[in-house]
């Protein structure tokens, strides 16, 4: 080796796919064992019984996260655009909004939206129930929008001023510059932090279990209390952990891959 170096700063990430492959194989093996063995362990049998409920609960989490992220993105882009406005009061107001909703604990915001919004909406003679999960969506959309606004502002400000000057020298209007030059580049820069935010929001949906939503965490708690066996409790909570991991880890890896690709340009 030509290099004399004792410093491992360039240590590569050990690839995790061998571990994932091993984990998936183990799970499939356990599933096969449960199905085909005459005397499978009780805990595994119970897990197989409760798995559909868990997955339904996970569906609720994913649904909440998708809706919250969609709402938050739309609102955040608007607020982000306002934060770059030429009018100082608008800029100040958006700054306050972003500071408040980024510095508040997500749990507090979830409680806020759950308790402050009414039990049901009354529009003329119609009574619309306002289910808890929608309140959680609104509660999570608040920090999502504040973060999206920051991501948007950061992306626009990271466009080198040389681009602005070049576009202005071509006699493009401010609106055109945004539309044709700045925003297309922003989208690429915003994507990795936006994906990171989505992963955070998905993990935050676990808080919905604290306000009565029947999500995957709630399902795991009910299962654990119903079966009331120690080995099953260990198993169900490990499964809960792995379910979230299986959903959020690929997002994190995709984000890293996207960032690496962007850095090369």
């Amino acid at each position: 080796m030509a290099h004399d170096t004792h410093h491992p700063g360039a240590v590569q990430d050990a690839p995790l796919w061998p571990w994932l492959a091993a984990a998936v194989t183990t799970l499939l093996g356990l599933a096969a064992w449960t199905q085909f063995s005459a005397n499978p362990p009780v805990a595994l049998q119970q897990l197989a019984k409760w798995l559909p409920t868990l997955l339904l609960g996970l569906g609720a989490n994913i649904g909440i996260s998708v809706l919250a992220m969609a709402l938050g993105t739309v609102a955040g882009l608007l607020i982000g655009a306002l934060s770059l406005s030429t009018m100082a009061p608008l800029r100040g107001a958006t700054r306050v909004y972003v500071q408040v909703f980024r510095n508040a604990p997500v749990l507090v915001l979830v409680y806020f939206s759950t308790y402050v919004f009414p039990f049901e909406l009354q529009l003329h003679h119609w009574r619309l129930p306002f289910p808890d999960w929608i309140k959680v969506v609104l509660g999570l959309a608040l920090p999502a929008s504040a973060n999206v606004a920051e991501i948007f502002r950061g992306a626009v400000q990271s466009i080198p001023s040389a681009q602005w000057e070049a576009a202005q020298s071509l006699a493009l209007s401010r609106r055109d510059i945004f539309r044709l030059v700045v925003l297309p580049q922003c989208v690429r820069r915003m994507l990795p932090p936006w994906m990171n935010l989505y992963a955070s929001i998905t993990m935050a949906t676990s808080l919905a279990s604290l306000v009565g939503v029947h999500d995957v965490v709630d399902a795991a708690q009910i299962a654990s209390n119903t079966v009331s066996r120690t080995d099953f409790t260990v198993l169900i909570y490990a499964t809960l952990l792995l379910l979230f991991f299986a959903y959020c880890y690929p997002i994190a890896r995709a984000t890293q891959a996207l960032e690496a690709r962007h850095a090369r340009h």
């Binding site: 993990m203 676990s206 409790t233 909570y237 979230f244 991991f245 880890y249």
Partner: peptide, 19 residues
């Protein structure tokens, strides 16, 4: 590190406290 960063704190807390 990957496991801790990609799972919710609440779930980790339950795993620690309840399990």
């Amino acid at each position: 590190v990957e496991l801790t960063r990609n799972t919710p704190t609440l779930v980790q807390l339950y795993c620690a406290f309840l399990v």
